[in-house]
Design a protein around this nucleic acid. Structure first.
Lengths: 316, 316
DNA sequence: CTATGGTTATCCATATAAGGATATGGAACA
DNA sequence: TGTTCCATATCCTTATATGGATAACCATAG
């Protein structure tokens, strides 16, 4: 300490290891190295060296050593407040970690259409339950918008942005769509070359659901229910009909790719991808289970909406 | 990651090493382990392990690994803010360290009376100048209160609390006083047994300065200038007179102890110790030199106002 | 006055963490 | 397609920090 010379080496540390600041504050608050060592669950020699290191790196006499502990110097006092702010922030960090990693239990209801519910959700749910085995999950398969306001579900996976203001939605990666038909169908009825040709073909479409008609309308193509000769709101059934050569279906590219017998038609057509949203009620944001599952879904489907869709999940 | 099991070991860390949080934030801000490693000046494997450690200790998947870096998960996002607060506080800490350890230069004027200036200040100044060699120090010896308002001095060491409101004062450890006389004087004139006996003795006192008279008056003893047959405002001269057997002097116990020929009288008397104050103008608080010297003085004289008063500093 | 219980600093064997080299994988691009 | 570049994770050696034991110091109590 006496040989401390302001000239030997000069760069004042601007990269003080945070552990040293933590040690500093612990000693300040505990009043002695020994007490601080017990507090931090390290040994007293470690703290002694940490303080020496901090003092040499800062070139400050932070403490006055006595036989009863370490007393802050005037210079040391200046640094206490910022160190306390660090500690306070670190406690917030740890508190939030605990909140995030708490073992959740209880039940959540998830609403999704057939495609998502049957082909995409299972893998996501399996991963979620590894982290939170005590959370029971009920899946409501529905291609109608389950009414989150009436708590028919806690979380919904939807293909459109919800309009109700008290719902919180987050868009996931869009799902590309395409038109497909069985090779045998094309052999028999020809391959459409434009949307106008659709009028001459058997289209597989929705019954009540008007999403396709409205979407096509927005793109300038007028379709009506009558243009669809095979109608069902069950998305999987639509695909199965196409696989049997009944007609042309618009469906997920990723799903159709799992069925080699389906051939894509109008591949050049600019069909907008299907949006993919996860939605929950605004109040649910404060429910740990729901928040955790929503976060999980966002991460899970972050860059591949078809994650987990593999050989084991084909349509066979 | 897949074998992560919520049951094997369960205690969630509440003692997360701060270095891990620092690594976490660095990766968040840099976007990749490699970039963060460059930022923190550590190696990439170190950061990789730090993040793995943090994830295992928190049991959270904080990042999603891609070939372009690490992407925060939803859970990780929650923790960013508190980590940033830690960083911000640490930057404040470092900034204040720099402020404190900056090489100061310039000049400061210190005012002190003879005793303090000649016997106590030199050691304190020597220590200060080891840390700040570029600070020039002018010492104004004066037992009158130097007028800090008129900037006759930047810092004053005084024996009383200043009354001006725009001065900032800090009390140091009091200095015990006692009455002393040379043995030869006591042999010739006898030893006083009470303050009343002082009327029969030769007292060495102040000329202009009324501190002693006022202080004694406050204790119920009425003295006037006429009671002092030897008067000087120079404190050292007072002692030297006593050492020559001229009379009785009231002075610092610590100083008189350095003169073996001086014998204490009225040792039982409850003489209040002399206060010891360091004072500067309120505006000077923002002057780094002055603030640093004041802090140094406070630490230096923290528990021993006579620190540095040794054999080399005796009155001989 | 000595004994005790507290403190800090130092020594040294050891456990821990760091970094260099490397394998690997994906993205961008010619 | 193949090359290049930039990522991460792992291996293994080396460097670093840790903790137990200890000595010295001081305050306090018996």
């Amino acid at each position: 300490m006496e040989q401390q010379n302001v000239y030997d080496g000069y760069a004042y540390m601007n990269n003080v290891p945070w552990a040293l600041i933590r040690s500093f504050l612990a000693v300040v608050e505990a009043g002695s190295l020994s007490a601080a060592a017990r507090e931090l669950e390290v040994s007293q020699p470690t703290l002694s060296r940490n303080i020496q290191l901090l003092e040499s790196q800062t070139r400050l006499n932070l403490f006055k050593r006595t036989s009863q502990g370490l007393m802050l110097t005037e210079e040391g006092k200046v640094l206490v407040e910022s160190a306390q702010q660090m500690k306070s922030a670190s406690e917030t960090f740890v508190r939030q970690v605990s909140g995030l990693s708490t073992e959740l239990k209880g039940e959540i209801r998830i609403s999704a259409n057939e495609i998502v519910g049957i082909y995409l959700l299972p893998a996501a749910i399996a991963a979620f339950r590894k982290r939170h085995p005590a959370v029971q999950i009920e899946i409501v398969i529905s291609n109608r918008a389950s009414n989150l306001n009436k708590r028919e579900a806690d979380i919904a996976l939807r293909m459109f942005r919800p309009t109700q203001p008290d719902l919180v939605a987050r868009r996931l990666t869009d799902m590309p769509l395409g038109f497909y038909a069985h090779q045998s169908y094309l052999d028999e009825y020809g391959t459409p070359e434009s949307f106008d040709d659709f009028k001459l073909h058997t289209l597989i479409g929705f019954d009540q659901n008007r999403d396709f008609i409205d979407g096509a309308g927005a793109m300038g193509y007028a379709f009506s229910n009558d243009d669809f000769e095979l109608r069902t709101d069950n998305l999987i059934l639509q695909i199965q009909l196409a696989r049997q050569g009944c007609g042309i279906v618009g469906t997920h590219v990723a799903l159709a790719n799992e069925c080699p017998e389906l051939k894509r038609v109008l591949e050049w057509a600019p069909i907008p991808a299907l949006e993919f949203w996860v939605v929950c009620h605004a109040d649910s944001q404060y429910n740990a289970r729901i928040r955790a599952f929503k976060a999980h879904v966002i991460d899970w489907f972050a860059d591949d909406p078809y994650r987990g869709l593999g050989l084991r999940n084909t349509l066979h």
